[in-house]
Design a protein around this nucleic acid. Structure first.
Length: 725
RNA sequence: GCUGGCGUAGCUCAACUGGCAGAGCAACGGUCUUGUAAACCGUAGGUUGUGAGUUCGAGUCUCACCGCCAGCUCCA
């Protein structure tokens, strides 16, 4: 007998091998009809999967219906099978790779014969084929085979990617499961819905390429994305939400609202801040600067370039060579003379010989080259100085720390700078403000004693939380990024030190009561870190604020302080940036507010709207009062009707409009119109000003009730692979 | 960097299978003097991303390059 414990706590007995379907039926007919799958002992299983007795007492069990989120996941995975089946019908010879679900749908990686690709034009045909399959409502039938038979079976099906996967990964499981649906059979862990008829609504969303098993040098597969729901209404709501989310895209809003721009003539990934965007960014920077001064930081300024040796010492240069702009090379004087002479073609061999010697250039290879080759050779070897656009600020700040002897009494030293750094990101990776090639970090480096580490780390975490909360950004997760001893990135690291650092961070996070996920291998090469991760309007995850613990760079640069024992000690460094990058943060903030910044951040806070130019003089008076109160204001003097002026101000997302006509001019009033609450009626100018000042000074955040909940998360691939075979 | 898609006026988009590059909004000029989300009339605006090629003829077809978008890989 099998003992089954239902969600209400009651325990029922069934014969050995009873199927979840039977259990559901024993509870009620409607439940049995609605059943999609079941959860037994915390695992989601098919309705036909026999349940076996356990030693540990009754099996916790519940029936999953379309109301349960887990059921949606099962449905989507089954829909992925339906899609794969449709594709195999339309493209005979296609080879299947992986077909997992994601938080919002599913995809299947497919290799088409003859390097054919799928395009969106193929979607209607695939969807039509899928509809036919769904209409047949054929069951998903599970069967198992031992590895050798399973391997042969896949080979017979011509699914050699599956064969490869069995050879490399799955062989260790001994027995593998398959699901059959009509003529279609797929190696798959399951579980699945009982039959295809449960698929209420589905849609293919996009097509893109993906590498087989995520290996950059592996073959490219077609990744076909789709989503499915039990109910068409849910699908429609999902699609509407995607459309709404796209309207928040910071790239679209940034252009519409004149916040920033990009120019092909300047270069990809290089942001040009326009006046309105610069105001918002400037306010954010000032907000943080004020906060840092309160918290004992000292502002510093450092240049945009540094000698390449500096970054060789820090270790950044060798590690990130591929993602840096090339170095700036300065030639020594004789080398420059040599290049200039060669370009004019007027140097005899003797002169060249003399200049080569003066430039300290090895001449053996030189003479084998033609004139152009010689110029290149000299430019390569006659270098006196080589500079790098700084890819991060720490080495400069370290030099400030090291500029004079430090006592333990001076620590912690907290050096802060909005430092602009340059990284040559891969072209395909650039995206609006969120991934760029030049950006400004709200950077600071803390130098402290080992005893101070935990306190300083906690203080910086609290600062970051304060900053995010001040901006109404509550929807973030914290990621503890750790080392990975098997990753060459951490080669030569002292893992005893790393473990201590990771334990320090973990204990601070626990002490603060913060929940976090741990990410192995995500650490910086010099230390573990706690990252604040937020999502953009499309659900993509971005790292914003970060707090990083570093025992390595103080070592590499030989930093010291004198301890109470009058002996030299090594300080510990904390790298931290609450906003992360100003560019990325602005991008996220634009999307967060949908471009409608709260009063204290809005580029234009108030617009005075005269009813006609008969009150132009009064409008100017109002404007001057607003400006005198430190508010960013303008007057709309266009010969338009008031309705048009309101509409335009509303579309520009200006927080407050002050409408003035003859009535107001006569009585010294303004008609106060709020972007969110609408017409609030007439009030004195003084009243309006104090109201505005109060809202701005309190940094209040009011947002129009948004029907748009944040989009669902798109999980990292490793979380999405639960149906990986 | 890789795979695929897309580049037409400042913006949003038209232009049947190759056959005279167009509209709305914005801009500019004028009329109207306006009461809480779009007044009316007119003017101007283009080497169709760049460069080659095919063709009597290219926005449209081919190739290369540049840029953007999605995904993959990467991300100090």
């Amino acid at each position: 007998m099998v003992q089954i414990q239902l969600p209400d706590g009651s325990v029922k007995e069934f014969p050995e091998g009873v199927r979840p379907r039977d259990v559901a039926a024993s509870i009620g007919k409607r439940l049995a009809e609605a059943a999609v799958a079941a959860e037994a002992k915390g695992t989601v299983v098919d309705l036909d999967r026999p349940l076996e007795a356990e030693d540990g007492g009754p099996i916790p069990f519940r029936v999953l219906t379309p109301k349960d989120p887990e059921a949606l996941d099962v449905l989507r995975h089954s829909t992925a099978h339906v899609m794969a089946r449709a594709v195999l019908r339309l493209f005979p010879g296609a080879r299947l790779a992986f077909g997992p679900t994601t938080a919002t749908g599913f995809y299947y990686d497919i290799d088409l014969p003859g390097s054919r690709t799928i395009s969106e034009d193929d979607f209607p045909a695939i969807e039509a084929e899928m509809r036919q399959i769904v209409a047949l409502a054929e069951p998903f039938e599970r069967f198992t085979l031992p590895v050798p038979d399973a391997r042969q079976f896949c080979e017979d099906l011509g699914q050699d990617l599956k064969v490869e996967h069995i050879d490399q990964e799955l062989h260790k499981y001994g027995i593998l499961s398959f699901y059959r649906q009509g003529e279609f059979v797929d190696l798959c862990r399951g579980p699945h819905i009982p039959h295809a008829g449960k698929v209420g609504a589905f849609k293919l969303l996009s097509i893109a390429a993906a590498h087989w098993k995520g290996q950059a040098d592996g073959p490219m597969l077609q990744r076909l994305y789709g989503t499915a729901f039990f109910d068409k209404k849910d699908l429609d709501a999902f699609l509407t939400r995607i459309e709404e989310a796209k309207k928040r895209d910071h790239r679209k809003l940034g252009k519409e609202l004149g916040l920033f721009t990009l120019s092909e003539k300047v270069g990809s990934g290089l942001i040009l801040w326009m006046p309105k965007g610069a105001i918002v960014r400037g306010i954010l920077e000032q907000f943080l600067k004020d906060e840092l001064l309160k918290r004992g930081y000292e502002p510093v300024y450092t240049p945009h370039i540094g000698k390449v040796e500096l970054y060789k010492t820090s270790g950044h240069y060798p590690y990130y060579r591929d993602s840096q702009f090339p170095t700036l090379k300065m030639l020594n004087d004789p080398a420059m003379a040599l290049v200039a002479g060669l370009e004019r073609g007027e140097l005899d061999d003797d002169t060249q010989k003399v200049l080569l010697a003066e430039a300290r250039i090895e001449e053996k290879e030189y003479w084998e080259l033609d004139a152009a080759g010689r110029i290149g050779y000299v430019m390569e070897h006659g270098v006196s100085e080589e500079y790098l656009l700084k890819p991060m600020n720490c080495p400069h700040h370290i030099q400030i720390y090291a500029a004079h002897p430090r006592s333990y009494r001076d620590l912690p030293v907290r050096l802060a700078e909005f430092g602009t750094v340059y990284r040559y990101e891969q072209s395909g990776q650039l995206a609006g403000l969120t991934r760029v090639r030049g950006f400004t970090q709200d950077d600071a480096h803390l130098f402290c004693t080992p005893e101070q580490v935990r306190g300083e780390f906690r203080a910086t975490m609290e600062l970051t939380q304060y900053v995010l909360e001040s901006l109404g950004l509550a929807d973030y997760t914290i990621r503890l990024s750790k080392s990975d001893p098997s990753d060459p990135k951490f080669k030569g690291a002292d893992f005893a030190v790393w473990e201590r650092a990771e334990a320090d961070i973990r204990s601070v996070l626990d002490e603060m009561g913060l929940s976090y996920e741990e990410a192995v291998g995500e650490a910086a090469f010099y230390g573990p870190k706690a990252d604040f991760v937020v999502r953009d309007c499309l659900g993509r995850r971005w790292q914003l604020g970060t707090v990083q613990l570093d025992y390595l760079l103080p070592e590499r640069f030989g930093l010291e302080y004198t301890g109470p024992d009058n002996k030299p000690h090594r300080p510990v460094m904390i790298h931290r940036a609450p906003f992360g990058s100003m560019e990325r943060f602005m991008g996220i903030l634009i999307e967060h507010f949908a471009g409608a910044f709260p009063l204290w951040l809005a580029p234009e806070q108030v617009r005075v709207l005269p009813i006609s130019d008969k009150v132009a003089e009064y409008a100017d008076l109002v404007l001057n009062e607003l400006k005198a109160a430190g508010l960013r204001a303008s007057v709309d003097r266009r010969p338009e009707k008031i309705g048009a002026k309101i509409r335009d101000a509303q579309l520009e997302k200006i927080p407050v409009m002050l409408v003035v006509g003859a009535k107001e001019a006569e009585a010294g009033l303004v008609a106060f119109r709020d972007r969110i609450d609408g017409d609030l009626g007439a009030m004195t100018l003084a009243e309006a000003v104090s109201r505005l000042r109060a809202e701005a000074d309190s940094r209040a955040i009011r947002q129009a009730a948004s029907p748009l909940s944040p989009p669902e998360d798109v999980p990292p691939a490793d979380q999405g692979e639960k149906h990986a075979y």
